[in-house]
Write a protein that binds this DNA or RNA. Structure first.
Length: 498
RNA sequence: GGGUCAUUAGCUCAGCUGGUAGAGCAGCUGACUCUUAAUCAGCCUGUCCGGGGUUCGAAUCCCUGAUGGCCCA
């Protein structure tokens, strides 16, 4: 490939960089070589003793400071950076060639000896270097980094190159997932994968994405939750099972909502929701230890010590405390709505009158209680019509054996004792199907295949789901949930603007 | 979907009541063998988001569209 044939294409690039590219090629340098072997990462090299040699390192050129016959610069990778030093009397012609051809942003391999500069910085004295890749576009500004929120989402690689904080967030995300996997595996969980393309969007109350399967000529849905498949695995004999599950919900965008997000769900045979409360508390503490080496973190302007007891409160207690309304005193949605209005509480919802009692309680809770729940709380005793797959409470048939973990106004975990009685399940799903025909797009469809599996016999089960993106957002204080997602979906920009 | 704020050089940002666009970084030239936001001297950089309008004159005012942030639904 030569530059002349792609003249118009090369116009997208910085002229001076294209000139350097030409010079490299004319000088016979392989600009995009096949490989380079390193002896250490930049971080490892930083801790080597002075005099260690040969040390071979690679990274992106972050800065270059030429002082005449000596040049200082930094190489950077995801986890660290290291200063390198070039001397003219060591490199001779290569020294001048470096300055004629290397730009900030290029990839470079260096070989030499570790030493400490007069000002005390661990550095590599370069004896030879290898060109590892030319950057034809200019890097973001070195001091402020990339500040434009839109560009940080669209071109995450630039954000990662130029913003330390962003690198930290995504390293944390990886470590969080790894800590979760280690925790669950230590508890005997097996990791599985279940379908994303499904015939029925069940397992949660949400609007699915619809697509078409050509070969079968059927419409299929992207899963909104892996729940019903994971429970089928319990029927099949798995005892503890979990999935790191990308799920898709075709709903509004907001700083706390993604349409394509990651949820981890886990199911345990013979557990009830209380067992999961205990286990998941330990899991969250394990995550905090891994990420922060501490169980106390600051959220907003508050210090929260997660090692303290996490109170368990019911919907009824919570709402009674926050509003003075006892939800058990009202027969139906209409009566409760009147009580809410009598208290002067204004709920924002398109059609409050058509909401059932359960949904109304949910709206009320989101308005008066949830935003103020900062330190961890287990919320329990959810209304039954909000939880079509959860086990009915043995004493109070209006509620289910369920809990949510709320931290900083966000539901981090949702868990319950599973409904395993196929007869009750059929009745509950039929009432959901009824809601669907009345136009509730979020109501759950009747899933015969799932019901059939249940008819073959399910043991007691408790399952849970944890939103990974939301958890990361809460723990790291991210303003927008997309700050913790590497490549959030954006509306495409016009070709000629790129 | 509604409100609101934003969009100016590759990046970070100034640009007042309308008078024809500027700084830093990056880049180029030169000086410099311990710098690290290197420094010093000089130079270069524009579809002021797009389209209309008002005006002698628009980055600036008005309308409209695009994209994004935030608030609300």
């Amino acid at each position: 490939m030569n530059i002349e044939q792609y003249q118009s294409y090369y116009q997208h690039f910085a002229d001076y960089r294209v000139d350097k590219l030409k010079l490299l090629q004319e000088s016979g340098v392989e600009v995009y070589p096949e490989r380079f072997s390193v002896t250490h990462t930049l971080q490892e090299a930083f801790h080597l003793e002075d005099g260690t040699t040969p040390v071979r390192l690679a990274g992106r050129v972050l800065s270059v400071r030429k002082m005449g016959k000596i040049t200082f610069g930094h190489l950077q990778d995801l986890q660290g950076k290291l200063q390198f030093v070039l001397k003219k009397n060591t490199l001779v012609d290569q020294y001048d060639f470096f300055h004629k051809t290397v730009d900030i942003g290029d990839f470079l391999g260096v070989e030499g000896e570790m030493f400490t500069t007069n000002s005390g910085e661990r550095s590599l004295q370069v004896e030879s270097y290898t060109f590892l890749g030319k950057a034809l576009r200019e890097m973001p500004e070195k001091w402020h980094g990339l500040a434009d929120q839109e560009l940080r989402y669209r071109q995450r690689y630039l954000d990662l190159i130029s913003n330390e904080e962003s690198r930290r967030v995504f390293l944390m995300r990886s470590r969080m997932l790894s800590a979760i996997r280690r925790f669950l595996e230590s508890r005997g969980f097996l990791e599985v994968e279940t379908p994303i393309l499904t015939n029925k969007a069940s397992g949660a109350l949400a609007t699915p994405f619809l697509t078409h399967h050509k070969a079968l000529d059927i419409d299929v849905y992207l899963r909104i939750a892996p729940e019903t498949y994971l429970k089928r695995l319990i029927v099949g004999g798995f005892q503890h099972v979990f999935e790191v599950s990308r799920c898709f919900r075709n709903e509004g965008i907001s700083p706390v909502h993604l349409q394509d997000f990651t949820m981890i769900e886990g199911y345990s045979a013979f557990f009830n929701y209380r067992d999961n409360m205990k286990m998941l508390r330990e899991m969250i503490l394990a995550i905090l230890q891994e990420l922060f080496k501490s169980t106390t973190i600051s959220i907003g302007d508050k210090e929260i010590d997660f090692s303290q007891e996490w109170p368990v409160v019911s919907f009824r207690e919570l709402i009674l405390k926050d509003t003075g309304i006892d939800i058990d005193e009202y027969e139906n949605g209409a009566a409760l709505l009147q009580a809410i209005r009598d208290k002067g509480i204004r709920l924002e919802h398109e059609s409050l009158e058509s909401l059932g009692k359960g949904n109304l309680i949910d709206q009320l809770y989101k308005k008066v209680s949830r935003p103020f729940m900062i330190s961890p709380v287990f919320l329990t005793c959810h209304p039954i019509d909000l939880s079509p797959l959860a086990r009915r409470n043995d004493v109070n048939e209006q509620i289910v054996d369920r809990f949510q973990l709320v931290v900083n106004g966000a539901e981090i975990i949702n868990a319950y004792s599973e409904l395993v009685d196929p007869v009750d399940q059929r009745i509950r799903l039929e009432s959901q199907a009824q809601l669907r025909t009345q136009g509730d797009a979020e109501a759950m469809p009747l899933d015969e295949e799932y019901l059939k599996s249940m008819e073959y016999g399910m043991p007691p089960i408790s399952g849970w789901g944890m939103g990974i993106d939301r958890l990361l957002q809460v723990l790291l204080n991210l303003e927008n949930i997309r700050d913790g997602v590497l490549f959030p979906l954006m509306r495409p920009i016009e070709e000629d603007q790129a």
